[in-house]
Design a protein around this nucleic acid. Structure first.
Length: 581
RNA sequence: GCUCCUGUAGUUCAAUGGAUAGAACAUUGGUCUCCGGAACCGAAGAUCUGGGUUCGACUCCCAGCGGGAGCGCCA
């Protein structure tokens, strides 16, 4: 008999089915099983309370009836508590069985797989070409990657698409500056992207001081969009320079895209958007622009979704519609997840409404659409982050600073370590800290930037989790054994620390489900931190390498399983682990 | 003006309508012949205000107050 990976559906079913044999219950009963505070057991079902209330029955009496009807089980004991909670306390044998069956990375991965895999496109990172990535891009990149990994882990087919901003107004300005300053893009030296960014800044200043320059910039953009060979060539070079600067960052962050289909990719697909939406009378002309209103919506009845500007040019609403159509038609996406700043919520709400009407009119199945939005990164003044001279903090600087600080700590810990090993550890620890700092808080909240916080190595941080993993490696190293060895003769968990750690391991599937349902990795972070804390406490209280074989095996099994869950979980956050640190 | 988000210890953050609101940092007291002290154990300390819904509210609703954002040709 196999032990259920996620106990909640099992208990839910058991309670529901049993309830059906009792007169007072109907099929509208929802057991509401959830993990319980450890003071009350391991799982609790709360559903009797609201049900009894509705039926006008005493909840404690009804709960008792249900408990009496439940079949006896060797796997748990059941208790009535409080106003009508039903508490389940798992038997030690069950805990041991679960850990033995599921507690390796391989088995976890197997059992976490969904029976209904879907094709999910994750649209994230999406920087603008011609500019460097700055701290503002870190959230989309890190959160998007984690969500992609979480879904992929559960067996979904994931397409990672970097929707570059490579066709917008910034090119007119940049092209103007390049031509006015007669810059050759062929030898820009060691940091070409920085030079491009400076040029852009010059151009931007020019169009603000002189109206003629503004007209020229617009003209350069029109020329580019009309396929002018010179501008197109320059544009391609700019794109290449930008991409190579992005790739450096993606490599550090261990992010790889399947596609980088920017806005330019859709430039010959926007006409189809205009004509189709016009044919279906979804859009209308207004002040010379083509717009979509949603009369049924309290805000978008008046607030337009502009899909073609009055000068005839497309904008990001147009390309986003074209992009969605492409993802549906060519990729057969079941779901599309957009990971962007929360300030774009209106845009995506309008996009989803418009797409829904459009696809419906064309009788095409609309993929499930999710806007995974996150808060702004703020500075000390509670305004969007800027450096003192008003420039955004470059992402590459942040990452290098993190690695530098981590390297210092690694050297302090181990002075004789060869430099390449220091660098390797510094990368995993430093970048892990940066990722974790971002992922560990609810993404919808604004984020106050501080180097201390981003690079913190103590407390609820990646290095703390990595440290727990490294310690477990150290145990097995000493024992000349492997975490993947089998520990078949282990005894059941008895002591408080053994039991607490065991039950924590069992909650991994619940957390995975929650993080997936809400597309919020911080649930996973909180859990991993609690697991690591529980492990440290256990490890402090219980000697692992004892002579008594069955006890040692149990404790080693707990170590191995903890390591498997921590490593797996951190992997889902895009964070690597070390055998020694 | 309209709309949305947000308000929890000194600070930074958790908490699926569920039982006594949980951590970290900082403060502070301990553990140290220990299998890695990047550790462990303890103390102190919080739900903006006022109503409402509910058996039960940090959570949902209404009204204030404070902070932030969006609102026609940027993305």
């Amino acid at each position: 008999m196999s032990t259920p990976f996620d106990l909640i559906p099992t208990l839910d079913n058991l309670l529901f089915e049993t309830a059906q044999s009792i007169d007072e219950f109907s099929d509208s009963f929802v057991p509401q099983t959830r993990s319980a505070d450890e003071r009350f057991g391991d799982f609790q079902a709360n559903g009797v309370l609201p049900y009894a209330k509705r039926a006008g029955i005493n909840p404690r009496e009804l709960a008792q009836k249900l408990i009496d009807a439940l079949p006896d089980s060797e796997d748990w004991t059941i208790e009535l508590a409080g106003p009508g909670f039903i508490n389940f306390t798992l038997s030690s044998r069950f805990l041991l069985r679960w850990i033995m069956e599921h507690g390796t990375a391989k088995n976890l991965a197997k059992v976490a797989r969904t029976k209904e895999p879907e094709h999910v496109v994750v649209d994230y990172s999406s920087p603008n070409t011609a500019k460097q990535m700055h701290v503002g891009h870190i959230r989309s990149t890190i959160i998007g990657e984690s969500i992609a990994r979480i879904l992929q882990y559960q067996g979904h087919k994931i397409t990672r698409d970097n929707h570059l901003g490579d066709w917008g107004t910034q090119f007119g300005i940049l092209l103007l500056a390049i031509k006015e300053e007669k810059v050759s893009l062929d030898n820009l030296g060691g940091d070409p992207i920085a030079i491009l960014e400076n040029l852009y800044r010059h151009g931007n200043a020019r169009i603000k001081e002189e109206e003629y320059a503004l007209l020229q910039a617009r003209q350069e953009l029109v020329k580019l969009q009309d396929g002018d060979p010179e501008n197109l060539q320059l544009w391609e070079k700019i794109r290449d320079i930008s991409m190579s600067s992005f790739l450096k960052i993606y490599e550090l962050l261990d992010v790889r895209f399947d596609h980088s289909l920017g806005e330019s990719f859709y430039r010959d697909k926007v006409d189809e958007v205009y004509s189709s939406l016009s044919d279906h009378k979804i859009c209308q002309e207004d002040d010379g622009a083509l717009v979509v209103f949603h009369p049924e919506h309290k805000r978008f009845a008046k607030q337009p979704f502009i899909i073609r500007k009055s000068d005839g040019a497309s904008n990001y609403a147009t390309t986003d519609l074209a992009t969605l159509a492409y993802r549906q038609k060519d990729w057969h996406a079941d779901q599309v997840i957009y990971v962007t700043d929360g300030r774009q919520r209106d845009h995506f709400e309008q996009l989803f409404l418009t797409a829904s009407k459009w696809f419906n009119a064309d009788d095409v199945k609309l993929p499930k659409l999710d806007h995974v939005w996150f808060g702004t990164i703020l500075g000390d003044d509670n305004k969007a982050i800027k450096t003192r001279d008003g420039q955004p903090i470059k992402l590459i600087d942040l990452l290098e600073e993190a690695m530098k600080r981590a390297a210092e700590m690694v050297r302090q810990k181990n002075a004789e370590l060869p430099e390449d090993e220091v660098e390797k550890r510094a990368r995993i620890i430093g970048l892990g800290a940066v990722k974790y700092a971002d992922l560990s808080q609810d993404r919808t909240l604004d984020y106050v930037f501080s180097w201390e916080k981003m690079l913190a190595m103590q407390g609820n941080t990646a290095p703390y989790l990595q440290y727990a993993v490294a310690r477990i490696h150290s145990i097995f190293r000493k024992l000349n054994s492997l975490p993947t060895d089998s520990f078949t003769s282990a005894r059941v968990p008895e002591s408080d620390p053994e039991r607490k750690l065991s039950r924590k391991l069992l909650f991994f599937p619940l957390v995975l489900k929650q993080a997936t349902r809400e597309l919020k990795p911080h649930f996973l972070c909180t859990y991993l931190y609690e697991l690591a804390t529980e492990f440290s406490s256990f490890y402090n209280q219980e000697k692992v390498m004892v002579d008594e074989k069955d006890t040692r095996n149990l404790r080693l099994l707990l170590c191995a399983s903890t390591q498997a869950v921590l490593t797996t979980g951190l992997g889902l956050l895009g964070i690597e682990t070390l055998e020694e640190m």
